[in-house]
Amino acid sequence: MPAPSQNTSRRDIALAALAGITPTPGVSKPDPIIVADHVVRKFGGLTAVNVSHLEIQRGAITALIGPNGAGKTTFFNLLTGFDQVDEGSWSFNGVKISGTPPHKVARMGMVRTFQLTKALYRLTVIDNMRLAATKQKGESILRAALPFLWNDQEKAATARSEELLTRFKLIDKRDDFAAALSGGQRKLLEMARALMVEPELVMLDEPMAGVNPALKQSLLGHIKDLREDGMTVLFVEHDMDMVRDISDWVIVMAQGVIVAEGPPNIVMRDKAVIDAYLGAHHDSTLEQDRG
């Protein structure tokens, strides 16, 4: 990615890159960070995911939407190694990562959050953050009992954690247990913690679920900031206002298959999408079901 000049934001660059693309399922992108082929996951007789081809554009915010049970979260789990596919393969930055265990996927720079927030409750907020720092010497059993080997690194991780906590307005909660945070604050903590891994691709599974409207605005701002900082964002969401507001590209899944993709304003008028998903309610905000 070229660095943005003063007048062009990363948003403009992402939109320009995606501008000329035909909005059809499986269309190829100029600079894909993820390329998936023939990804199939079956649960007994049910085919939860059946994606024949998909590319995710680098540097853009891509939304993955679809009705409950469409296979969005399953697809997320497959891409990040948390679930095993029956068929298919995919690559991240041109490297094939299908079959790679989740911790290795994360180390490669592809970090996810969860639909049901996974704050580590009986760890303090700052420890939640420090945990996520990468390549920590003190995490090896051979060095753990010798603090002088990792003290400097720990200080650096603490400083970076505090910086991120300040940005996410959680610094006041630094020494509280994560369990003492509100639902929305836990979402913020989870996102901040994911950033400690220094990811290239951030995958957010329903970042807005259970977040109050005031906090929603700041969460939206944070997600846009991720793109401006040069990261790629892929998120699953039910909140249509949010999808319209922040995504550069929208992918629609229904019954495991990608039925449409394209820029938000075009996709939301797509007949297939309205039939498969939006129904008569496409103008109103959909219920935030956890599905």
């Binding site: 948390f82 911790h103 994360a106 969860f114 996974k118 945990l131 010497k137 995490e139 753990a144 010798l146």
Partner: peptide, 28 residues
């Protein structure tokens, strides 16, 4: 010494939620 180290922190995190720890790149 062990439980107050980053190593011990990973253990405590595993106790809380091992999937979250996996998602952060640790070999649980």
């Amino acid at each position: 010494l062990l439980v107050r180290s980053p190593w011990g922190r990973v253990l405590k995190a595993i106790r809380e939620d091992e999937e979250a720890v996996r998602s952060l790149g640790k070999n649980v």
